[in-house]
């Protein structure tokens, strides 16, 4: 299982106000809130945690096929500049973090030994970001392969009505898109 999440930091500045009353309390654990408030760059810490939670959530939903909105249940720990973990109930996800001045790309996997392919790209358009992101991912597969989301919003690859046993994830936000998939068959 794999999940990925992209945050366009420029857009995040205008799209959400993390300093709004109740914003941190509703989404972050006490420990995360302390880390955010003690951080040199609280804004960046907010979106790093958020992106980790979102990537882990995508993994979790893929496995459990049920949607919900409970960001606080996804507990983040940063291990290094490039690595973290997210725990939800009894499940643990390993997070790979790719951070630049412009974006955050978080990748969540259950088993970090599995080989994966991921990419982050600039989208030079203000519309059809979903389509463009999907095209980037599909370029790694044969022409006959199509992407469809199921009723809980999980994307799957299909080749002539037949679902491929590949775990994939797509994400886009503002000027950036990203995807990831696991090379071995997952289901």
């Amino acid at each position: 299982m794999i999940g990925n999440d992209v945050v366009d930091l420029q857009l995040a500045k205008t799209q959400s106000n993390w300093q709004r009353k109740g914003f941190l309390e509703k989404q972050f654990t006490e420990e995360e809130q302390q880390t955010i408030l003690n951080s040199e760059n609280p804004f960046l810490q907010v979106w790093l945690f958020w992106s980790m939670k979102e990537a882990a959530y995508k993994c979790y939903v893929q496995e459990h096929q049920k949607r919900f909105f409970a960001p606080k249940k996804f507990k983040c720990k940063i291990l290094s500049k490039k690595e973290g973990i997210v725990q939800v109930n009894s499940f643990i996800y390993n997070i790979k973090i790719i951070l630049s001045d412009f974006y955050i790309h978080a990748l969540a996997v259950k088993n970090k030994n599995k080989k994966m392919v991921s990419a982050l790209f600039f989208i030079n358009k203000k519309s059809s970001q979903t389509k463009i992101t999907n095209q980037y991912l599909l370029s790694y597969f044969s022409d006959k392969v199509k992407l469809h989301k199921n009723e809980v919003g999980i994307p799957f690859l299909y080749e002539q009505q037949k679902r491929l046993p590949v775990s994939i994830s797509t994400s886009h936000h503002g000027d950036y898109g990203g995807f990831a998939f696991i090379l071995e068959n997952e289901f």
Partner: peptide, 15 residues
């Protein structure tokens, strides 16, 4: 799924 609200903005809706 329908309104395409960014999940980070869902908390704004709640607030």
């Amino acid at each position: 799924k329908d309104l395409k609200i960014n999940s980070a903005n869902l908390v704004d809706v709640v607030l």
